[in-house]
Amino acid sequence: MMSTVDNPMVYGGGTAIQILIKQGILFADNFVDLAGIPGLTEITADAAGLRAGPMVTARGMETDDRVRRVAPLASTAYRHVANPRVRNTASIGGNLAHGDYRLDPPPALLALDATVEATSVRGTRSLPVRQFFVDFQQTALAPDELVTAVRIPAQPTGSAYRFVKYSSLSANDWPCASVAVLIAGREVHIGLGALAPVPRYASFDATGMTDQAAVDAALEVIAPLLDPIPDVRGSVRYKRRLAQVIVEDAVRGAWKDLDNA
């Protein structure tokens, strides 16, 4: 169908597209609404993890029992998206395909090593989220590809996690910096949002480390990833500083949970 209409654009939840249309800067002639396609709103869970259709809403990910149980970090991150009205509409496929650098779910999906199923007339392929965000608002999706599922591996038992989002102006604003931390085994996985043109990922082995050593290691491993874009929310300098604060807070918090577990 996409090939039969002029200048088409896929329409999921519409929360990003509507804004661009209202601002008069999106010029698509036809919208292809995914809402009517069956099977895109399903969440399934098995021993390996979760599989969520692209039209599952952010609210769905936040509240679904299986998501909460199998990948609580993902559920937590989706809970931080905008507000309930937006979460009830925003689709997780669209959220990924938008490829924006400051959305809330990508850092969590990076830490969790999620994969994206992309489908076109040529077939379906699987893309690791860690290779999905190519450049500023650019993803690895081909123009004719559609996100048809997101797979999230189950968080290992005994793992600990934190999602920290910091807005520098109004509390409900876009994040000025966000971080998802997952400590599984002794491996620390860190997903960063809003701190570079794309969501970024880093990890390190924390075997034998104290909490302070883990914090130091985390700050070291994220340093080369920071490339914040200055805007009304803060300068490069301030955003770098914030990155250090939230990464420290998140790692320390998760570490504490680990100790208490």
Partner: peptide, 10 residues
């Protein structure tokens, strides 16, 4: 390039 990016509406 900006124009292009915006039009693309990413």
């Amino acid at each position: 390039a900006v124009l292009a990016g915006m039009r693309r509406g990413r």
